[in-house]
């Protein structure tokens, strides 16, 4: 009989009731990060283009969507989406209660938190067409296959674990 190991990684999705402002997104992501145990994390939401993509005003810059810089765990990056969903993989289930508490602290409204399978673990045809043989399997399921290369996920340096970064 196979018994599930309690150190097996789990995948979790956090779905806030509303889209987050950059400041709240920063607060939430930092709270999640401080909880620890993250193997990989993805944020998803509607795109925030830098200029009007179509229509009579095509090309007009959208100043409101520029320079949405947030700082998570000491690393600054620019938000390209309105944060509406966070998917992450935790090293083990023991980090889950802390994650729930972190969300409760950071979010001023209700949210859903679900455990399930959110990242695929075998490359799809799209993955292959875009990246060829994927060496770092962590990237699978993190990115939109339609996204351009400059919109890819931020991966920590190879062989650097989350704990290493925290030290």
């Amino acid at each position: 009989m196979v018994t599930a190991s309690d150190t097996e990684s789990i995948q979790v999705e956090i779905l806030p009731q509303r889209y987050l402002m950059p400041a709240t997104a920063q607060k939430l992501l930092n709270a999640i990060y401080e909880n620890g145990g993250i193997t990989r994390i993805m944020i998803q939401g509607p795109n925030l283009p830098r200029s009007v993509p179509y229509g009579p005003a095509k090309g007009t810059p959208i100043e409101e969507n520029r320079d949405l810089i947030i700082e998570v765990a000491g690393q600054a990056f620019e938000l390209g989406v309105k944060l509406g969903r966070v998917r992450l993989e935790l090293e083990s289930e023991k980090y889950l209660p802390g994650l729930k508490a972190a969300c409760e602290r950071a979010l001023p409204f209700t949210f859903q938190i679900k455990q399930g399978k959110f990242f695929h673990n075998r490359p799809t045809i799209s993955d292959y067409a875009k990246y060829g043989d994927v060496e770092d399997k962590r990237i699978l399921g993190l990115i939109d296959p339609k996204a351009r290369k400059d919109k890819l996920a931020i991966l920590s340096e190879e062989k650097v674990t989350i704990e290493d970064e925290e030290r």
Binding site: P16, Q17, R18, Y19, L20, M21, T24, P46, N47, L48, P49, V52, A57, I62, E64, N65, K82, G84, P108, F109
Partner: peptide, 15 residues
């Protein structure tokens, strides 16, 4: 058809 923004406004990509 999207969730509202944090401040209760309807989401608008073009702001």
């Amino acid at each position: 058809s999207l969730r509202l923004e944090e401040n209760g406004m309807q989401f608008d990509m073009l702001a």
